[in-house]
Design a protein around this nucleic acid. Sequence first.
DNA 1: TGTACATCAGTGAACGCGCGTTCACTGATGTAC
DNA 2: TGTACATCAGTGAACGCGCGTTCACTGATGTAC
Lengths: 203, 203
Amino acid sequence: MKRRAPEAVNGKQRLVQAALHLCAGERSFSSLGLREIAREAGLNPNTFYRHFRDLDDLGLAIIAEITDDLRAALREIRRGATDATDAARRTVDYYFEFVRRHPQAFVIGSRELHGDSAAMRRALRQVLADQAADMAQDIRVAGLAPGLDDATLADVTRMIVYQMHWLTLEYLEHPKRRTAIAEHAVRFIVMLTAGALALHATP
Amino acid sequence: MKRRAPEAVNGKQRLVQAALHLCAGERSFSSLGLREIAREAGLNPNTFYRHFRDLDDLGLAIIAEITDDLRAALREIRRGATDATDAARRTVDYYFEFVRRHPQAFVIGSRELHGDSAAMRRALRQVLADQAADMAQDIRVAGLAPGLDDATLADVTRMIVYQMHWLTLEYLEHPKRRTAIAEHAVRFIVMLTAGALALHATP
DNA sequence: TGTACATCAGTGAACGCGCGTTCACTGATGTAC
DNA sequence: TGTACATCAGTGAACGCGCGTTCACTGATGTAC
């Protein structure tokens, strides 16, 4: 295949897809090999270097491709919420729908958060930190947690984001329990904010 | 060193120590090689096979060595608590002290929870499930969460255990923030139980 | 409209390396008689 | 108390393999004139 056939997609996309596909099962991204990905993509190992500097480069590209979309969409959703429970339910529903649309990317993200690549770890932690900060700001702006001081709010959103990381993996691994997991997520958020308000609200 | 020198520790222990040492930094256990561990232990690669079937076997041994002790100690601690906040504080304090005593084992455990080895993943998830079940039972027996139904209690303890997994990694990675992280953990537990009681308690 | 040239995605062969694993061997310790 | 033997942790050489990376090359597309 030396011709740039019109039906053959971009080699770069094929490498990305191959990596996603290989991680769909139980493999972690950092256990993948360059040759392995190229093989899966039906390309010569060398071709990898035409598109990415190394495996970290590919991993970061996968993360970047998704996070911006998700971030913007979640903010949009939350801005329209009327109360805390409503915001929680709508955010969780939308989030899991997004997860369902990009299962492989999320499974990679969740696993690499504590994985071997320092570059990917750093990038993913930043993603979570951003999500927590967004959430805190949206809650503040929409007045969903009246009387909660900034420090507690930051605490709470961090805890929520951490918990969602776990639930995302469970969600992906147990398709049959998805409804239950989504409900569990909403319950968690509601419980935690209720507890925070009960203990820390200034009247 | 062909003699079984009295000062030379058990080769098995040396291999375990070598693996722990190699994971002390940013490496994950599943990225270690058999030869690498043997090299670190100052042993011939072959000697590995005298003690372990493969790398999973070693990993599971490390997990098993610690979890039983921790589990028993935590139960003991909780049984003596007088109220929920007291139980939370004492459990968290003791837990983090335990983490400080075995930092490498915990860092391995926390990373391999979503790591490459299916065997280690399974074992570690069982550890967390056991911890959550223990906690629920202890809370029930000590009457620390009166009026909370079993399902909600199970939910709450699961969430706590998940959250502690994260906080353990942060605790190990940021020695300077340890006091703050321990307080954060207590706050989390108190908030969550307060929220659960506020929403679900049967009068 | 043609032509010359740069660019760029792809190929295939080759490299040196570290890996997991197997083999046959060694020598110290524990045990039966 | 001695001796023969089994066990067991260790050694060192060798294997085949897949890896990441480099090199020189190809041929299609885009662009300047």
